[in-house]
Structure formats: C-alpha cells, structure tokens
Simulated scan of single mutants.
Amino acid sequence: MDKMLTIYGIKNCNTMKKAMVWLDQHNVAYDFHDYKKLNISEETLREWAGQVDWTVLLNKAGTTFRRLPQEDKEELTQEKAISLMEQHPSLIKRPVVAQGGKILSIGFKEEEYKKLF
C-alpha cells in the first residue's frame, strides 16, 4: 500500500482496541487519529458521507446518541447527522479505517480485516 493507513476513533473504545491489536499483530502500519485530541472536520465527514451512507457512519447504539436531546435525534438528515458527528465525534462508528482519503472499513470485523490486509 502506497499511502499510510489511518485509523480514526477514540483510544478507550473497546472496538478500537481490538482493531489496533489486530493491526499490530499483523504488522499493519497505521496512524491513529484520536477524535478526543484532534477532533474531526466537517470536510472529512462530508467526504466520508460521499463514500458511504451517512447512516452507516452514525452510531445510534451508543450512549452519546442516547444522551442527545430528543429534538436532535428526530428527523435526522445527512446535514443534521454531519453536524452532530462534528460536535460529538463519539457519534461516529468506530473505527473508521481510511487510506488516501478512501474509507476501507467501518467497525471491526476480523474476517473483513483478513481480506483487506
């Protein structure tokens, strides 16, 4: 692979830990983009939403989504979801693995990683 892989997420997330351990064990080099320290830009979220459906990116199962005010959870559109994910990066499914701006994977599934790497 010619460009460095980037794994986006939050360090303390269990799914992130599993993904990074897998990548480390298989000698896959990557950069880690920690949303808590580096945030995420609206531009990046828009690029991602152009590659995958925004509903795939938005984590509705987590506590961050459940804690949102009811009006934020209602009548979700791509615009509203991007704004919420920018404000609350914990709303983005983790990990997002990208290379050269292209999403390779969202979430961690060992079988998918075996095929990709």
Rank of each mutant, 00 (worst) to 15 (best):
E112S: 08
P69N: 13
N39T: 04
N12R: 12
Q51M: 07
R94V: 10
E111Y: 02
G100Q: 04
L84D: 06
Y30H: 07
Q70H: 04
K109G: 12
S83H: 07
N27H: 06
L23E: 04
G101I: 02
Y113K: 10
A19Q: 08
L58N: 10
G107L: 06
V96T: 12
G9L: 08
N14D: 15
K73T: 11
Q51E: 12
K93A: 02
M1A: 12
K115E: 14
D2A: 14
R67G: 05
E74F: 02
R94L: 00
M4H: 05
M85I: 11
H26W: 03
E86R: 14
L58E: 03
I7F: 08
K60R: 15
R94Q: 05
V21E: 10
V97R: 01
E75G: 13
K60L: 08
D2E: 15
G9I: 11
D2M: 02
P95D: 05
F32L: 02
K93C: 03
L76T: 00
N14Y: 02
N39P: 01
D34N: 15
T55G: 00
L5M: 10
I82A: 08
K115V: 14
I106T: 13
T63P: 09
V28E: 13
L57H: 10
L91C: 05
I10G: 06
N14A: 08
P69C: 02
K3D: 13
F117D: 11
N59I: 04
Y8K: 07
R67F: 01
I106M: 12
G62S: 11
N27G: 07
Q87K: 14
T44A: 05
E111H: 11
L116T: 11
Y113G: 04
E112C: 00
M1H: 12
L91W: 00
A81Y: 00
N39C: 13
L104W: 06
L76M: 01
D72H: 01
A81S: 09
V97E: 01
A61C: 02
E71V: 08
I92M: 03
T55E: 15
G50V: 09
L23I: 07
K37M: 05
T55F: 00
A49S: 15
E79G: 12
P69F: 03
E71F: 04
T44F: 00
N12A: 06
H26E: 09
K115P: 11
I82Q: 07
W48G: 09
P95M: 02
L23Y: 09
T15E: 10
A29P: 06
